[in-house]
Nucleic acid binder design. Structure first.
Length: 104
DNA sequence: CGAGTGACCGCAA
DNA sequence: ATTGCGGCCACTC
């Protein structure tokens, strides 16, 4: 269910992220209309939804976020299962190349 | 109803 | 180059 347009955008973009790619909070927030609302994206991810592929969400450095269900290790495994290589430090390898952009 | 927190990012000094 | 601060939205107590 979608109420706020901001959340709607996040849902749409998040659901549109193809497996094997990752996106960042800043990009989602920017495409949602608020480049400085990256924080809100994280909140929506944690409290707003639970059935979306949030494991494809990474921070600006390409590192897995914290507070994820189960822990970063689970998220890392999930990403690897989709074809994304994760470094031992929980950082997406070639993140710059794997960084998926909503539309651009 | 009001206030605070929270999975972040960008800029300024 | 590094450190510190501000700002957005949503959800909870």
């Amino acid at each position: 269910m979608i109420d706020s347009e901001f959340r709607n955008k996040i849902h749409q973009l998040m659901a549109g992220v193809p497996a094997g790619n990752v996106t960042t909070y800043g990009d989602l927030a920017a495409f949602a209309g608020h480049a400085y609302a990256a924080r809100a994206v994280g909140m929506i991810a944690h409290y707003g939804d639970e059935s979306l592929p949030w494991h494809r969400l990474v921070n600006r450095f390409g590192g897995l976020a914290s507070g994820y269900y189960g822990g970063r290790e689970v998220q890392a495994v999930m990403l690897e299962a989709e074809g994304v290589k994760i470094s031992p430090e929980f950082v997406v390898e070639k993140f710059k190349d794997r960084r998926w952009q909503p539309k651009l």
